[in-house]
Simulated assay, not measured.
Amino acid sequence: MSTSSFALRLMDVHVSLAGHEVLHGIDLSLTAGRWSSIVGPNGAGKSTLLKAMAGLLPVTGSIFLFDQTLMAMDRKQRAQQLSWLGQNESASDDLRVWDVVMLGRMPHQDWLAAPSAKDHAVVETALQATGAWDWRERSLGQLSGGECQRVLLARAMAVQAQVMLMDEPLANLDPPHQVDWLEQVRCLTSQNTTVVSVLHEVGMALHADDLVVMQAGRVVHQGPCADAVTHRAVEAVFGKRIAIHALDGQWVAVPKF
C-alpha cells in the first residue's frame, strides 16, 4: 500500500508529560477513508495518542498527515484538514448553538470576514445531521449534557475536514443518540472522511472498521474489527475480563465474571 493511502502515519513517536514518558515509540498507519477506534484499559495512553495525532502535544518522532509533516503545516492548513472533538469539551454557556457550530467554519474564513453563504449552508447541514437544528437559537447553557455533546459534534462536522479525531464522543449520549452517532460516522467514511475515535465502550468500538489496541503507552495490536486475532488482543489487554462474541450480525463485548 502506498503512503498516500494513509491519512495519518506515526513513526517512533514518544510523548512525555510532566517529565514522564507516556507513549513509547508508537508506529502506526491509519488508512484513509476508514474508521479506526482506539481501545485499551485506563491509563493506556489512548487520549494522549489522539492529542499527539492532532498536534496538540509536543512529540519526538514523526507524524505525517497525508504525506505532509504535521508540525510543519501552517495552523490554518492543519485546521482545515484535521477536525477535533475533545473529551469534556465546553464552550461559553452564553453562546448561541448556531454560533458555536459556526466556529467550525473559522479555518475556512478570512480574518474578520463575515460567514459566507456556504458557511451558513454547512452549519445548517451539521445541525440537521446531529438533531440539533431545533435548538439553533438557544444558548448552550440551556441544554443538557447530551444536547451539548451533539452541538459540539456538529461543530466538528462543520469543519468538513478530511480527518476527524474524536475523544470519547459518546459521553452523555443516550443509546438512541449513540446509534445516531454511529450512523453519522458511517456517512462520513462513505464520503472518504477518515475518523479516529477513542471509546471506552468496547461494544461500540467494535462497530469500527479497524481497532488500535493499546496497553501501557504502546500499540500492541492493530487490525480489522471482525478479525479473531483482534478480538483476542482486546480481551488480553482487559485481563480477559471481557469476551467478544457475535450476536445478531454484530460483535459484542460481554463481561466475564
Rank of each mutant, 00 (worst) to 15 (best):
M1E: 13
S4A: 14
L10T: 02
L10K: 04
D12R: 14
V13W: 00
V15P: 04
S16E: 13
S16F: 03
G19W: 07
H20D: 10
V22S: 01
V22E: 06
I26K: 03
I26Y: 06
D27R: 06
L30K: 05
A32R: 09
P41V: 13
P41Y: 08
P41C: 06
G43P: 03
A44E: 01
A44R: 01
K46H: 04
S47E: 10
S47R: 10
L49C: 05
A52K: 02
M53H: 02
A54I: 03
L57A: 07
L57Y: 11
L57D: 08
L57T: 11
P58D: 14
V59S: 01
F66L: 13
D67S: 11
D67A: 11
Q68M: 08
T69F: 07
A72T: 13
A72C: 08
A72Q: 14
M73F: 08
K76Q: 15
Q77V: 14
R78V: 07
E89Y: 06
D94C: 05
L95G: 02
L95I: 01
V97L: 04
R105M: 00
R105D: 02
D110T: 13
D110Y: 09
L112G: 07
A113P: 08
P115N: 10
K118Y: 11
A121L: 13
V122D: 11
E124L: 05
A126K: 03
A126L: 11
L127A: 02
A132P: 04
W133Q: 01
D134T: 03
G141W: 13
G141S: 15
Q142E: 15
Q142W: 05
Q142R: 09
Q142T: 09
Q142V: 03
E147Q: 14
R150G: 00
L153E: 09
A154P: 09
V159W: 05
V159Y: 07
Q160I: 00
Q160R: 14
A161K: 03
V163A: 03
M166F: 02
P169N: 06
D174P: 00
P175Q: 07
E183C: 02
Q184T: 05
V185Q: 00
R186G: 06
S190T: 08
Q191S: 10
Q191L: 13
Q191P: 01
Q191M: 05
T193M: 07
T194F: 06
V195P: 00
V196K: 01
V198C: 00
L199D: 02
G203M: 04
A205H: 01
D210C: 14
D210Q: 15
V212T: 14
M214T: 05
V219R: 06
V219Y: 09
H221L: 05
Q222F: 10
G223D: 07
P224Q: 09
P224W: 07
D227K: 01
A228W: 14
T230D: 00
R232W: 09
R232G: 03
F238Q: 07
F238M: 10
V252Y: 08
V252N: 09
P255W: 10
